[in-house]
Amino acid sequence: MTEADASLPIVPATPAQAAAAADVESHAPYLKILFALFLLTVGEYLFARFLKDSPGPLIFGLVLLASAKAALVAWYFMHLKYERFWVFLVIGPALLMAFILTLLLFPDFVMLPDPLGEPVPATSGEAPRPAG
């Protein structure tokens, strides 16, 4: 291993290392993961069906279940489990920024004063004509 190779953040793999890594990846318990994903999908369906009228627990539970599913796919199917740190350096900032962007949109579009709380002028009580 030369000085140059040691300096690289990503060390090129020898063929033997690559073969070993491929071997590990190829024996992951994919069918078990698929079964877990099936259970989670059914779980989501039932959860959404029976809690459809209580938004708080519904959203909390569904986000949790969906995150678990997404994490399973990413962790096993996308081989994050077997990757080195650099992959997290690539997607970590993207996820962080995605979170920041969405979060900073909330004050302007969600945390608004309630329009129903404002007094309504009593000049016209006519029903609007439905469009079309």
Partner: peptide, 11 residues
């Protein structure tokens, strides 16, 4: 930049 630097070209 990440993959193709010459030998010895540390970041």
């Amino acid at each position: 930049v990440v993959m193709l630097r010459a030998p010895g070209m540390k970041m």
